[in-house]
Write a protein that binds this DNA or RNA. Structure first.
Lengths: 270, 270
DNA sequence: GCCTACATGTCGACA
DNA sequence: TGTCGACGTGTAGGC
């Protein structure tokens, strides 16, 4: 990786440096004093202050204030990147995104530092464990975790136009069961989602008995109330248990090497 | 703002620099080669590659890959920040968040650049224009945009436990009208939200006629179908019109200076 | 390209 | 603190 560093460059120098960096699609970070104007789906104005501005090779732009996780302004990607000196000796960095049409402008009055990185190498795989799909798969292959005697018919079953039911099964008494899985506390929205699937199923299978089960580590009180109102059911999922099954089955089937990383420290979220 | 820049520091130097920066709550950016392990609400593993690591004074941590808007790993805030040299001469940066308990570890094999910023000054106001609240207020003060003869009774009316209806009004025939406002294309979720409010209202006012109107710039086909099914209505909102009214009224009432920024360039979304 | 649902979503407001 | 809803949500996946 090659790196260029410019400390306190005059704005005219910064302008040239940024232009070249943008055209050559470098990875740019800039500590500067700037104000920001954005207009697109919404519109925002941010007064002057010290910020970190990041411009990535793919045109992603991030403006970070000294605090917080979220960028105050950004562009997920941009097609046009410009740097120019304004009439009043302000360095204007302008980023335009085509669809939706969005414009972001940082008006920079002072540059503390610019770094230009060329040839950042990053081809590593990103592995996510315990996302909803994995929980769903564990439950599908161990339906007893939900209810004894449950027989899984299908995972990710399309429910007409309503979307996909996570698990579609038949219970010990032959009733159809639609199961919606959530990896976090289920709120009202999860209940509505399950309700939609059950309604769709009922419409397409008039008269046939069907149950709806919301499977999640927990549920909010209002959501539980709504669930009862709709005649649906809740099944608490023990994430620890699911985790241990998932990691065991991953160990048995997939890349055992990577997994050794996990579980070495920390005992997981409570 | 005071700035320290370290180019290609040995890991032992980087360790000391980071420790001091963390303890003194500096704003840190680091270009480095690292792998990342995260465990908390979920768990992830990221192999080695060149990344930008940001640590903010409040403990926010961001790890950015060369592409894309989203950080690949992060910590919205953290209570514990450590830097230490591992047995195998790897610089480990560990960030622990208390609630929920989440741990992020970057294992750094090489440091290209560290910058430590002290005293970043950023007290500027962030102004958002045309968020849902502003659209709602414009519609509330100009109900004719929704329907002639509409009389607004209340804005942000609490609907039992269901949440808040954006606008609560009475139409020209004396029927109650519940209006849900959306800033963007309304999907199924918006329809269900409105339905919930209308249902709640009906339960608390049995027999009284009530209408539900979804006011949005557009609506997805499935959502429109669902809306009809529920006996609710859709009213298309002309964002341009709302925008011009909002900016006119802002100009008349509030800070006219800031507003001069907006509208100078760009003609709005798409 | 539309639509749906997930996300370590984050964040703010309010009961 | 719990719960809810907005967000310029971003992002992946299906059709």
């Amino acid at each position: 990786m090659k790196l260029q560093v410019y400390t306190e460059p005059p704005l005219s120098v910064a302008e040239q440096v940024l232009r070249e960096a943008f055209s050559k699609k470098r990875f740019v970070t800039m500590l500067c004093r700037c104000s920001v104007v954005y207009e697109g789906r919404s519109a925002t104005i941010l007064g002057e202050g010290d910020r970190l501005v990041i411009v990535k090779p793919d045109g992603a732009v991030l403006v970070h204030r000294p605090r917080g996780y979220s960028p105050v302004n950004w562009q997920p990607d941009s097609q046009v990147l410009e740097a120019r000196l304004d009439e009043q000796d302000v360095l204007v960095v302008r980023s335009v995104r085509a669809k939706p049409r969005e414009v972001l402008e940082a008006r920079i009055s002072r540059v503390y530092l610019i770094t230009i990185a060329e040839g950042m190498e990053d081809h590593a795989e990103f592995q996510e464990l315990m996302d909803e799909a994995e929980i769903r798969d564990v439950l599908a292959s161990h339906p007893d975790l939900i209810e004894p005697g449950l027989r899984v018919v299908r995972v990710e079953k399309r429910m007409g136009r309503s979307g996909y039911a996570d698990i579609y099964a038949v219970d010990s008494e032959g009733r159809h069961v639609i199961i919606e899985v959530k990896r976090v506390t289920a709120g009202r929205e999860a209940v509505e989602q399950l309700k939609r699937y059950v309604d769709t199923w009922r419409r397409e299978n008039p008269g046939a008995p069907v149950r709806g089960i919301l499977a999640a580590p927990s549920i909010t009180e209002p959501a539980a109330r709504l669930l009862r109102e709709y005649g649906l059911e809740f099944k608490r999922i023990d994430l620890k248990q699911v985790r241990s099954i998932a990691s065991r089955e991953r160990r048995a089937s997939k890349q055992p090497s990577l997994l050794s990383f996990v579980g070495r420290r920390g005992e997981g979220a409570q």
